[in-house]
Design a protein around this nucleic acid. Sequence first.
DNA 1: CCCAGCTGCTTTAGCGCTTAAGTGGCTTAT
DNA 2: ATAAGCCACTTAAGCGCTAAAGCAGCTGGG
Lengths: 359, 359
Amino acid sequence: MPTSGSGVNKPGAAPGPEKTKGRLTIADIAREVGVSPSAVSFALNGRPGVSEATRTRILQAAERMNWHPHSAARALGGAPAGAVGLVLARPTRTLGAEPFYAQLIYGMQSVLSARSVALLLQVVDDTEAELAVYRRWAGEQRVDGLLIVDPQTRDPRIAVVEALGVPAIVLGGHGRHGDLPTVWADDREAMLETVRYLAALGHTRIAHVAGTPTFQHTQRRIRALKDAATQLGLAETQSLPTDFSDGEGAAVTRRLLSQPDAPTAIVYDSDLMAVAGLGVATEMGVPVPGELSIVSFDDSVLTRVMHPAITALSRDTHALGVQVAEALLRIVENPGSVGDIKAATPRLTVRESTAKPRR
Amino acid sequence: MPTSGSGVNKPGAAPGPEKTKGRLTIADIAREVGVSPSAVSFALNGRPGVSEATRTRILQAAERMNWHPHSAARALGGAPAGAVGLVLARPTRTLGAEPFYAQLIYGMQSVLSARSVALLLQVVDDTEAELAVYRRWAGEQRVDGLLIVDPQTRDPRIAVVEALGVPAIVLGGHGRHGDLPTVWADDREAMLETVRYLAALGHTRIAHVAGTPTFQHTQRRIRALKDAATQLGLAETQSLPTDFSDGEGAAVTRRLLSQPDAPTAIVYDSDLMAVAGLGVATEMGVPVPGELSIVSFDDSVLTRVMHPAITALSRDTHALGVQVAEALLRIVENPGSVGDIKAATPRLTVRESTAKPRR
DNA sequence: CCCAGCTGCTTTAGCGCTTAAGTGGCTTAT
DNA sequence: ATAAGCCACTTAAGCGCTAAAGCAGCTGGG
């Protein structure tokens, strides 16, 4: 039981002039100022019912005594919990390496901390565990809103979260996700732009090292590549699924480069896999961009720091986090007020890893 | 106000057999089973005072009705908040790229989520803001414990957190940090081992691209390098401070390699800076490890994925997170029960970026 | 046969806060 | 002149839960 205000806290110290209790409450302020606790409550919450003079005195006393509202007491009265929740269910190894979530979280923070909303973070192993966390948080009334990431086809989480009645935003969905609004980027357009660029350079054998195939955004990219191939008349394109890990990214690259008609360009669904792929190319003596062009579908320091620096579809993940957090807070305050939001389409940032194929 | 259990929630619906209230409470369970709310509370908390038969019926009812305790109501009664807090005050750009904190957090999660303890995460700009967050969390009774990272010399946070009376663990401290216990790694020994190895290879001009100089662990490393130099008779060693960003890492490397007597080996305080440094070497045509050996003081996918792969001091950051979380939970339950804990000393993992200096 | 001492409950109070419902004292409308 | 209204408060109740205290009904010792 973490009590004690500042240290002078002898339990039995009899006749102290001030009630040396553990916590500082509005009752203490009320006593100090000489009004009732409700008057203090009114003053602190900017509600009418107290004169300006009294309000000022109360506010000053609260400030001086360094009082903070007890979040539990407020929440008990039906006030919001002052927190939003995020559950991540990707394998830990990958998560630690991928800057995406970290950036996203830091972006969210810039909005959340300004509004003094806490972020509850939980990392779990699978969707089952994720659902359990949602159920618990909802039951315990711990969060006012949820951010659901990596939507999948027929995602079981949607129905559960809707049934729980907790406001939520889906990141990266598009298509059906119940009545939950989504913040999404146009992966399709980004992929089309990339393939058009590679085709313009003269590439015809383009491979796509994709992420987890059940993710909606992965599927959109795969479909976009296929469509682009049809449009541009590229015969030999292929999408290969992975689990987003650098290990699989490397393995798939090795397989691709060992083929008789190896691709001359590879698009990776994450920066980490692109880096791993570049490593494999170097290791196999395939010059980049001489014989192989590489594009990453995610940008970060990783891509910039490599040699050659990797051409990437960059988006401002931090800004995305800001957008998501804002949408989340809006839907918490006013459910139904948020529709689907289209984030900025990733733009192709050309660096040193792409060039005309040597022929 | 996020209420409503599942949807059937008409406020005025008069004579329903079940009280269609928003939240499911122990009173509902009590009514269902036919006992008083306290009996339910006793049963759910495994306390004596109810017969086994009744206890079973209550537990089953709670399970069947999918009841969860309202965390705020519990907390109000003085129960722990069921959450621990972590504030990060490094610049966002760096944080997103560095795998360290992400790994640490995921490690902590594996302990915390097993015990259903939530992690409150906040990213702030500076120490002042960090202190404000601690004060607020303590006042709002939001957290049961805190993890303080990146301890500095005469760290103001220590005194504040101790005064607030919130149990806390310091990560990476050593020396004085009030009465707060620390989980620390022996950076000194790690640095000594590294320098000995480089010296054994034949390096004499060894540079150290350090992190933020006010951090205690940075200082320990700087001092260790100096001591090693004295012991081994290396004249030309130097430690150069940075802010841990890849930008500064690159800039400092550029400066070092432009000197007339450029170092033949550089130790970087983070993997991200090591990668940036390797990039600069490549860009300047300095072969690694031919003319320059590179060691990273932190290991991750980054170092493994590069070509050449970077020799690094590796420690299991995930395991460190586990250790930290365990210590934190222990000190929350029983303040004073935790002393300083020494984590595993990082071991040198030799890869391709280190070799004898060409002479 | 009475009462202490159980067991297995229920009643009551209280955690810190919000909020609906009072309550005096004064002003204003009629 | 008196009712009505308003201001600036106070009182009281309640959020969901825990915990101390109370209280029936039974058992067994003296």
